[in-house]
Amino acid sequence: MSGRADSSATPVYDALDVALRADEPVALASVIGGKGIGAKLLVRPSGETIGSLGDPDLDRVVARDALGELEAGLTGTRHYGKHGEARERDVEVFIESFVRQPHMVIFGAVDFTASLGRAAKLLGYRVTVCDAREVFATPQRFPMADEVVCDWPDRYLVRVGPSLGPRDAVCVLTHDTKFDVPAIVGALATDVGYLGAMGSRATHGKRVIRLHEAGVTDEELTRVMAPIGLDIGARTPEETAVSICAEIIANRTGRAAPSLRDTDGPLHA
C-alpha cells in the first residue's frame, strides 16, 4: 500500500473526504483484483495524483484513463498488465468518478419555487433561486436553496451560463414575460441539459411570439419544455414539483413519458 510514509494513515481517503465535501470533481482508482489488491490512486482534474497502485507505469496509464472517465462522468472496471499494458488482465482496477453536483437554477421566487427547490435537493441538485425583486428573493423564503440571488435572469446567466452543462437544469417559473423571455433567451445560449418554463398553454403561446420577436428560432424552441412538467394532472406546488423533476429524469434517460408540451388537455386534473 502506498502512503504509509505519509503523515496521515489514510492520505487517499482524507483527500477524497475533503474533495467530496467541497464538491470538487475527483476520480478514485482501486485495485480490486490481482497484484496489489486494495491499492488506491486518487486523480484530480488537473492530473495531480495521490497514492499509488504500486507501479509508476500503471499509475500513469490509470491516471490518464481515470481523467477520461471523470470527464465523461463514468464509473467502471478496467483491466491492465502489471505495468499498465493494454489488453492484459493482471490487474483489475475499479475507477469511480465523483462529479460535481448538478445545478438547478430556478427563476422566479414564487410558491412553486419552494416546492421545486425541495424536490431538487432530494435529487441531489445544488439549487439557486434567482429573482429580480428584492422583497421576494430572500433566503428566509427559500431556506432549502443553496443560493438566493437577487438579479435579472439575463444578467445572472451571462455570469453563470458558461458553467451550465448537460446535467444541469434551468426552470423558469416567473409567469411574467418581462422576466421569463430574457431568462429563456439567456438559457438557450448555454449548454444546459433541461430548460422548462411554467405557464398555461395560452401563456406559452403568447410567450412564443415574444421569443420569436427576441430572435429565438423554432429549432431553439424545441429545447424549451413548456408548459413545464409531465402530464400527470399535478395540482399543488408539491405535485407540480414532482412532475417537473420526473420530466427532467425522463429527458435525461430518453424514456417515453408524456410531457405537457406534447399533450393538449388541461394542465391540472
Partner: peptide, 8 residues
C-alpha cells in the same frame, strides 16, 4: 461488491 478495510 468490493469489501475492504478503510486503511488507505
Amino acid at each position: 461488491v468490493f469489501v475492504e478495510p478503510l486503511d488507505w
